[in-house]
Amino acid sequence: MTPSFFSADGLVGIIFLLMLAAALVGAIVAVTAKRLVRALAGLIVCFVGVAAMYFFLNSPFVSMMQILIYVGAIAVTIAFAIMLTAPGDKEQMGSRNILYGPIGFCCAALVTFGFAALALTTNWIPFAKINDGSVQEVGRQLLTTHVMVFELVSVMLLIAILGALAITIEGRRKRWKS
């Protein structure tokens, strides 16, 4: 049954479609924009759209984490990188091989076709909810079943921080010597 256009469900449906469009349009802008900042803006719109998809899939926690981590942290990091390296308003850097477009399009079409075929031919089993997806359950799973992954991720982040520090210190030493 399709809900009436002028009801709460109808409004929810419209917002769902808008967010779906935001995710797609954002992704397209992120790839095709000539200015780096525009690409970042597209990426953020895409992140917000994906977060909304998670919200509609009944997992508000993941959706909020998507916004907090991807928009609040990763996009800001990219923004910092753009501002500090300051490529200015150079529209496009380097020339592009004329073949890249068609080849890329073929690859994308192939991947899309593969996923679509997979989705259509798979015999989908309606699956009962494993758990309630709440914060408590996510935390418990992280610290019991997936504790190895959890710890490895923190080790990886530590290595990244140390690597960044090492690179910076090396640069400073060179400056001191000269």
Binding site: P60, F61, V71, G72, A73, I82, S134
Partner: peptide
């Protein structure tokens, strides 16, 4: 919603992007 606190903090983190866009786009 039962994660209201995270919700507020997540939206608060969006505000940083407006500073960036304002500063950058003004040329």
């Amino acid at each position: 919603i039962n994660i209201g606190l995270i919700c507020v903090l997540a939206f608060a983190s969006l505000g940083t992007m407006s500073l960036f866009f304002a500063g950058w786009s003004s040329h």
